[in-house]
Design a binder for these strands. Structure first.
Lengths: 332, 332
DNA sequence: TTGTATGCGTTATCAC
DNA sequence: GTGATAACGCATACAA
């Protein structure tokens, strides 16, 4: 790779001048600019962004940390973030934290050491305190899908409690009263919140919680399968099933077909997230929309505004879920 | 962030010695190593990998370029690659090429300018010539899902033709003779190859190709929907539908339910890729397995071996597809 | 075993 | 406008 030095030699100017035309950072006489550009062209010069980064303490790259790289949820998030940055010449460095506290910390340190200008974090295991410390340490980052009071201005969240409320509320409005619930891992905040919303809806309709109709799954498909099987095994009747995410709902639907159970006649099922395979299920899954792509976009804009100081349209920090009614739920 | 210089001062040794204990690149007396480590600990020192990269011309990072960040296919690929590298302390920088030639080139240049030690490319639009030039230019990269003769030793592929053959062969063996085909964009190599395999199987069974039973889709769900609707509209009867990927198969299944058509009694459907939502469909989708995760793993190992010169288990460069029989196909 | 000195490719602060 | 020149944080020959 040609260096800036070779370009300067070929163009008969100094390093500094070449740097100026590259970065458009000062006035350069038109004639010399042309000379330099010709030289760059001829040598096929591309700036070495590592050196740029070291010298300028700016990398034009943003670190993204998500729990998983696979799965419909994170894929959409990443895609939107990348898109948003690509259009303004920034780039993303991606790492996975796998819901493991140490790995999350390590990945954050890695991204910082890569001189990322900012971080977009979707972390579940690291403590609030750690995040507060990060912020105090002068690290620019936004937090997705998590609320930490001390750094509320960098949190972009979905109202999970409200989502849980809406899901169960939907069932209640359809006339269901015996409602089973398959939760995510209760140590995860979103799982807890969604469940809280569920209870709130039940309370509002004066329905008592039946603890035997609760199953703690793993946010995976198998969790839904095991969940439905377990619930059916309790012999406590129920006409509706609320699942804390779409993967588990799909698992439950699959398990129901295997029984077989007629859906939605014998059992109404609702999911959460509205991931892109939700309409592959049969019947098509009614679910609660999680506007993950928009959240990603908003996170990107937060960075554009607060770190790169670019003018951006208004920022939104809390998103509201809503029920997407399809075919897996019906009146009792 | 503390620098190596501050560490050396605190530990009372030179820069070089600190560097040595960091990289374990030469013998250091135990006592001084301890001193240095204590100093690093105390300062919370983390090496600046940008500076490391500039100085050593090695970044311990691998650039990955895929067509899309979303979708089950690439997600699994990325996840496996990241995992494989993470365990050996390497990191990935990810970019999306969006099947656009210019964007692909740009992304490759970006990754190179980031001083990536190697690239793993899944590109569809850039020319063979360009890739050959890249290789000649001394860029270390592996090519996934594409075969370029001149650089055959860096290609890791699935035998798409064989996969297409197997899919249709499966239908033929079940007794189907009127077989419709929904293809991917024919400018894409894998779409072309899969279709070639389809024709080969037909020929083997002495079945003439019926061009009215061919539809060129877009590898997306909607392509499958439109495909089935179009094919049904031709009024040429068919009992089996071969789709060039699972997304389109899912779309076709959805469309079939809407008709409604009984699956698989009235129509057998087979997909291709075996993405993770294939068993969410109803009936569960019979498909051709594309071991994308293994291919990702192999690409990572190629890099480990050829670029980092680490000992790795044997490398495999061409993978064989196989039919995964589930519930969406049956004997006629 | 440890220290010194130089270079990696840029940016940025001075002068001119 | 333009050109020296000092950082940036680290690796690495070469000395000691």
């Amino acid at each position: 790779m040609a260096t800036i030095y070779e370009v300067s030699k070929l163009a008969g100017v100094s390093l500094a001048t070449v740097s100026r035309v590259i970065n458009n950072t000062a006035q350069v006489r038109e004639a010399t600019r042309v000379k330099v550009e010709a030289a760059m062209q001829e040598l096929g010069y591309r700036p070495n962004s590592v050196a740029q980064s070291l010298a300028s303490n700016r990398s034009n790259s943003i670190g993204i940390l998500v729990s998983e790289l696979s799965g419909p949820f994170y894929g959409e998030l990443l895609a939107r973030i990348e898109e948003e940055f690509r259009t303004v010449g920034k780039h993303v460095i991606i790492a996975a934290g796998h819901s493991d506290a140490e790995l999350e910390r390590e990945s954050i340190e890695f991204l910082r050491s890569r001189n990322c200008d900012a971080l977009i974090l979707h972390v579940e295991s690291v403590s609030d305190n750690y995040l507060r410390g990060l912020a105090d340490g002068g690290c620019d980052f936004v937090l997705i899908n998590r609320y930490v009071r001390a750094i509320a201005d960098r949190c972009i969240t979905l109202d999970n409690r409200q989502g849980g409320y809406l899901a169960t509320h939907h069932m209640l409005e359809l006339g269901h009263r015996d409602i089973a619930y398959v939760s995510g891992p209760m140590w995860k905040n979103d799982a807890k919140e969604r469940y809280a919303g569920h209870l709130e809806a039940l309370a509002e309709f004066g329905v008592a919680e039946n603890k035997t109709l609760f199953f703690e799954g793993d946010f995976q498909e198998t969790g839904g399968v095991r969940g439905l099987q377990h619930l059916l095994g309790t012999d406590v009747p129920f006409s509706a099933l609320v699942c804390a995410n779409d993967e588990m709902a799909s698992g439950a639907i699959t398990a129901a077909h295997d029984i077989p159970l007629d859906l939605p006649q014998q059992l109404s099922v609702i999911g959460f997230d509205n991931v892109n395979f939700a309409h592959y299920t049969y019947p098509k899954l009614t679910t609660v929309d999680y506007p993950i792509a928009e959240i990603g976009q908003m996170a990107a804009r937060w960075v554009l505004k607060n770190v790169y100081h670019q003018p951006v349209k208004e920022l939104q920090d809390v998103f509201e879920p809503r029920v997407i009614e399809r075919d897996s739920t019906q009146k009792i």
